Simulated scan of single mutants.
Amino acid sequence: MKRAFHGNKQCLPSKPCVHCGRSMSWRRSWAKNWDAVKYCSERCRQQGRAAHA
């Protein structure tokens, strides 16, 4: 059963950022690639890639 968004962000799926561990909530802009989203921000993405290089 899918939970619908009714203005309550607690109903949205969330997952931790790979770099900092901060919890990120689902966003409409991430709807098509939610499974591929790893970082909470551009800064974490840049620092996470630099750490792996």
Results as ranks from 00 to 15, higher is better:
residue 6 H to Q: 12
residue 13 P to R: 10
residue 11 C to Q: 05
residue 52 H to R: 06
residue 4 A to I: 12
residue 33 N to I: 13
residue 45 R to L: 05
residue 13 P to D: 09
residue 35 D to M: 04
residue 12 L to A: 05
residue 9 K to P: 02
residue 25 S to K: 10
residue 2 K to I: 04
residue 39 Y to L: 06
residue 9 K to Y: 06
residue 52 H to F: 01
residue 17 C to M: 01
residue 42 E to Q: 15
residue 6 H to C: 13
residue 11 C to R: 06
residue 44 C to D: 10
residue 19 H to K: 11
residue 5 F to C: 07
residue 40 C to W: 07
residue 35 D to H: 09
residue 49 R to T: 02
residue 8 N to I: 11
residue 53 A to T: 04
residue 31 A to D: 09
residue 32 K to G: 14
residue 20 C to Q: 01
residue 53 A to M: 05
residue 50 A to L: 02
residue 29 S to V: 14
residue 52 H to N: 02
residue 46 Q to R: 10
residue 32 K to F: 03
residue 51 A to K: 04
residue 3 R to D: 10
residue 39 Y to R: 05
residue 1 M to Q: 06
residue 4 A to M: 07
residue 39 Y to M: 11
residue 39 Y to G: 05
residue 43 R to S: 14
residue 24 M to F: 09
residue 3 R to M: 13
residue 34 W to S: 04
residue 26 W to I: 07
residue 5 F to M: 03
residue 28 R to E: 14
residue 36 A to G: 00
residue 45 R to Q: 10
residue 49 R to Y: 00
residue 6 H to P: 02
residue 19 H to T: 04
residue 28 R to V: 14
residue 50 A to C: 00
residue 17 C to R: 02
residue 49 R to I: 03
residue 13 P to V: 01
residue 26 W to P: 05
residue 43 R to N: 08
residue 48 G to N: 04
residue 12 L to N: 12
residue 51 A to Q: 06
residue 6 H to W: 03
residue 37 V to P: 04
residue 33 N to T: 15
residue 24 M to V: 09
residue 39 Y to T: 10
residue 5 F to E: 09
residue 14 S to D: 09
residue 27 R to K: 15
residue 52 H to T: 05
residue 15 K to Q: 08
residue 47 Q to F: 03
residue 17 C to G: 04
residue 15 K to G: 05
residue 26 W to T: 09
residue 37 V to F: 05
residue 52 H to L: 03
residue 17 C to I: 00
residue 36 A to M: 07
residue 15 K to F: 03
residue 49 R to F: 01
residue 16 P to G: 08
residue 50 A to D: 03
residue 53 A to L: 02
residue 41 S to L: 00
residue 15 K to D: 06
residue 17 C to L: 03
residue 46 Q to K: 13
residue 22 R to E: 08
residue 14 S to A: 15
residue 9 K to I: 14
residue 51 A to V: 01
residue 13 P to S: 08
residue 48 G to V: 01
residue 14 S to F: 11
residue 19 H to P: 00
residue 51 A to S: 01
residue 16 P to K: 13
residue 49 R to D: 00
residue 38 K to D: 04
residue 36 A to C: 08
residue 18 V to K: 12
residue 39 Y to I: 08
residue 4 A to F: 08
residue 18 V to F: 10
residue 51 A to C: 00
residue 19 H to F: 09
residue 35 D to S: 14
